[in-house]
Design a protein around this nucleic acid. Structure first.
Lengths: 340, 340
DNA sequence: TTGTAAGCGTTATCAG
DNA sequence: CTGATAACGCTTACAA
């Protein structure tokens, strides 16, 4: 790589016949610079192909203009969820808009703390954004303690409001989805969830139960099946349900891919959706829209989750602590799998 | 946020009774510092809770120790491919190992150039990694011109070897998969690909055709169907094939999700896999492993793609240009959908 | 083996 | 409105 001589603020100053500080002021659009000099300086900047050095600037203003994005190391979690890339877009877009860059870091639970401490104390970042919502996250405690800007996508634990985070109102989404199914005529619904260690799971269970009881169905009409975020979970439970002879006229799955597994199992056994059983999922993924029987699904607006998480950090940086929690709305997309 | 007074190299120096340069040398493990002072300095560093300021360091050494990751803005492309998060892991891991951070940027085609130029000329990054392999990428040209370290995941165009990039040997993978199917007894195979503007598509077609002809099948035994990376493509073509009455005893799909669509369509029509038709896909995704009829699939080792792409940049930074192209091996995972 | 001092490219304070 | 000058925190000749 050839050694390109950097053009600095001094070069521009010399050429334009002004002082470096004047050039600096032009760059930062300081209003007290005369229109004339501003234009002259700008033209020289362009002529010389000058670009301000971000690192030098950051050193001077003592800020990195960067926020760290901590994502879980193991793909089992957020990573292979279609939600992930979408949230990522929201994050990048919003931080860019605010003049901040995103520094990527992945972690294992063990090194989590080290990495965060490292980034923070090396002054590499001005804020930290967690895409994992591990319960009992030590590094979150740490950041809170030193009052360092951060936020979390998802809920670190249930009913938090003393930790910066952004989440969907999962309880409500689940409630509304369930209510909708009952209104469509369902008398007994199965809910297939992810692991119960996930806040999200608990919230969706709550909403589900609330709807069941409010609609006057008895508890037995709302049964729980705990599994994972994959097709197999749906497939397996669906077969189990069929084989057991229990009558469910609707199934809610915690992710579209699970819902898809359910549909597959039903069809394989000669049952039809929605005629024999209605099926609904979460995440409004491509899959839910494009498969043979389009599946009703809850859009969680992952891009907004990302954007809001960044916003929280920005507010933190600018004004110190403010609003700790934000909620992103969900929307139910009604499709053929529930008669729409 | 409370104002925490930064502990600098000077504080440590003063406390340890040495000069700042000595402390600096201890940090950078300069061998010509006596063991005694080294230890003393280290202990004082720890006692004071000192952490070197990365920004100041970067300014001094005139390097950001950061590489930019350019990912496509529209989710249609890499983003919702399960390949994406896996590659990301490889990228982050490898760059971390080399002491580099990853700066995330997403782009639209229009702003691509601006973003890259911005990052480079602001000295924010020491290298650029493209996750999109758009043909005719202007910013790649630019970087090549100014001899700035970069690399691309995927092939910018066919038979390139003058551009840093890393890719699978798609021609070969496709060839081997096809050969394997013929050896399993197939006499006529359908290939469902993605858009023909993708280098990957062309390469896979080539390999497919080579296998067909080498195995002595006539051209009609190897038919092409061009579609997209989604289930619907597979589903639609499979039905088309069934309805047309054409006899294919094997289908190769360019992604597991497409293969899955194919399987669904067959099963729906009362045909079975692999008995009536064998099916194989690419990417060895969760889907291919976990669905009802596990699907034979080609593992493309996305994490290696990411890791190697970073390696190329590292080599570029350290030694100027070197090896321009690297190939990551594929492995066929044989499953029930092809009698294994 | 260690210290001195001059950068690295900005911004910010304080005069004028 | 503009210019000196001193930070920002670290590295690196060059000296000792």
């Amino acid at each position: 790589m050839v050694k390109r001589q950097r053009i600095t603020i001094n070069d521009v100053a010399r050429e334009a016949g002004v002082s470096p500080s004047t050039v600096s002021r032009v760059i930062s659009k300081n209003p007290r610079i005369s229109k004339l000099t501003t234009e002259s300086v700008l033209s020289h900047m362009k002529r010389l192909g000058y670009h301000p050095n971000a690192i030098a600037r950051n050193l001077a203003i003592n800020s990195s203009k960067t926020i760290a994005l901590i994502m879980p190391e193991n793909p089992g979690e957020a990573l292979l969820n279609p939600f992930f890339p979408v949230a990522l877009r929201g994050i990048v877009k919003t931080s860019t808009k605010n003049g901040y860059d995103i520094l990527l870091s992945s972690t294992t639970e063990i090194t989590d703390m080290q990495i965060v401490k490292g980034l923070v104390s090396a002054a590499k970042v001005d804020g930290v954004l967690f895409m994992t919502s591990k319960i009992e996250n030590k590094s979150i405690e740490y950041l809170r303690e030193i009052e360092f800007p951060f936020s979390v996508i998802g809920s670190p634990y249930e009913d938090v409001d003393d930790t910066n985070h952004v989440d969907n109102d999962n309880e409500r989404a689940s409630y509304e989805l369930t209510t909708y199914l009952v209104d469509k005529g369902s008398k007994s619904i199965a809910l297939i969830t992810g692991g119960r260690f996930l806040t999200l799971t608990e919230q969706r269970i709550k909403g589900f139960r609330r709807a069941i009881s409010e609609k006057g169905l008895d508890e037995e009409s709302g049964r729980l099946f705990v599994g994972e975020f994959n097709e197999e979970t749906g497939y397996r439970y669906a077969r189990e349900i069929i084989d057991s002879g229990e009558k469910f006229d609707a199934v809610v799955a915690t992710d579209d891919v699970v819902a898809y597994g359910v549909v597959s199992a039903f069809i394989e056994r000669g049952l039809s959706v929605p005629e024999d059983t209605m099926v609904a999922g979460f995440n409004n993924s491509l899959l839910s829209r494009q498969c043979a029987v389009p599946i009703t699904s809850v859009e969680i607006n992952a891009d907004l989750l990302g954007a809001q998480a960044v916003d929280i950090i920005m507010e933190n940086i600018r004004n110190g602590e403010r609003q700790k929690k934000r909620t992103v709305p969900c929307t139910i997309f009604k499709r053929k799998s529930t008669w729409d």
